[in-house]
Amino acid sequence: MTEPVRLSKRMSELGLCSRREADEWIEKGWVRVDGQVVSVLGSKVLPHQRVSVERQAAAEQSKRVTILINKPMGFVSGQAEDGYKPAVALVESATRWKEDHVDTQFHPTQLRSLVPAGRLDIDSVGLLVLTQDGRIAKQLIGEDSSVDKEYLVRVQYTKPGKLPDSDLKRLNHGLSLDGKALKPAKVRWQNDDQLSFILNEGKKRQIRRMCELVGLKVVGLKRVRIGGVKLGDLPTGEWRYLRPDEQF
């Protein structure tokens, strides 16, 4: 890599912030390249140049919150649609989990720029991450994200008998969606009617569509873990802050 690249893109690659945050910081004069302030949007840098940010940027970033919700059915992950409420509507003082011991006071200003880092279908439940921190959003939904996600999936077999072992193997590796082979997954039986899925990708309605391909109908789907962060005992419809010791 010897070609100059946009400063905001380089800052994102370095893990300093998201591109949107980078543009904000550049406009505020909070970014230096080789010690010189760069405040013109669209500026380019070479890979060997040293990029640093002012203390104000780090201080602003540290105030950004990440919230974990146990999403109930009937809520959409992002923007309100078709009369359904977005999950962020659940975030208020009254619905904060009583067991949340993070020393952060809730304030409605935290709802600004709070976006879902990944999605859960309207008829799926469990762990949903909302964040103001572009670094976490990139880690969870960036093109090169390697964070795995675990789901408990209740199913019914739509054919006589039970699911053949060969089809369980296909769920693990060998299926394609939209003409593209899926990455290997880890799929195993938890009990007679429930599967555990661990995925490294998140195509739209992926698990439901995978199951359909082998004759399984999904009757319940719950996300219980994203990387190193577990849903745990968080009650349905309640939320808590990401703890300082937790990492995806």
Rank of each mutant, 00 (worst) to 15 (best):
Q139S: 13
V40M: 04
K63W: 00
T236Q: 11
A117N: 03
Q61V: 04
N191C: 09
F75A: 02
A22W: 02
Q132L: 04
L114V: 03
I198W: 00
L46C: 00
T2R: 09
L163P: 11
V102Y: 14
G78A: 15
Q139V: 06
G78R: 06
L7V: 11
H48N: 05
V51E: 07
A185F: 06
S8L: 07
R32W: 00
L171K: 01
G161D: 12
P4R: 10
R19Q: 10
H48F: 06
V115S: 00
P160I: 12
F75W: 13
A57F: 12
V224S: 03
K186Y: 07
L216R: 03
E150L: 04
D233I: 09
G202F: 06
F75K: 03
W189T: 04
S18I: 09
S166Y: 00
R50N: 08
D148H: 12
G220C: 06
G29C: 04
G232W: 01
N70I: 04
S166Q: 14
D34V: 11
R96E: 02
A181F: 00
G232E: 05
R240V: 03
S93W: 06
T95C: 03
K169F: 03
V33Y: 01
G15K: 09
V129T: 06
K217Q: 15
L41F: 00
V53F: 04
A94L: 14
D165R: 13
R6H: 06
G228M: 07
E81P: 01
F197Y: 14
L130M: 07
V153E: 11
R119Q: 05
V65F: 08
P72S: 09
Q79K: 13
R240S: 04
D121F: 09
G35P: 10
D144F: 12
Q79S: 14
G174A: 07
G215P: 06
H48I: 03
G29V: 06
S43L: 00
T109V: 13
L171G: 04
L231F: 11
I122W: 08
R96D: 03
D167V: 01
V155F: 15
Q36E: 15
L114F: 03
L114H: 02
P86M: 10
R205T: 00
I26V: 15
L111C: 05
E212H: 12
I122M: 14
Y157C: 02
G142W: 05
R20I: 00
R154P: 01
V224R: 01
S8D: 15
S62F: 02
V219T: 15
W30R: 06
Q56W: 10
V218C: 14
W25Q: 02
T131H: 02
E150A: 13
K204I: 08
G42E: 04
Y84P: 01
L90E: 02
T66P: 06
T236S: 11
E99W: 05
T109R: 15
V45K: 10
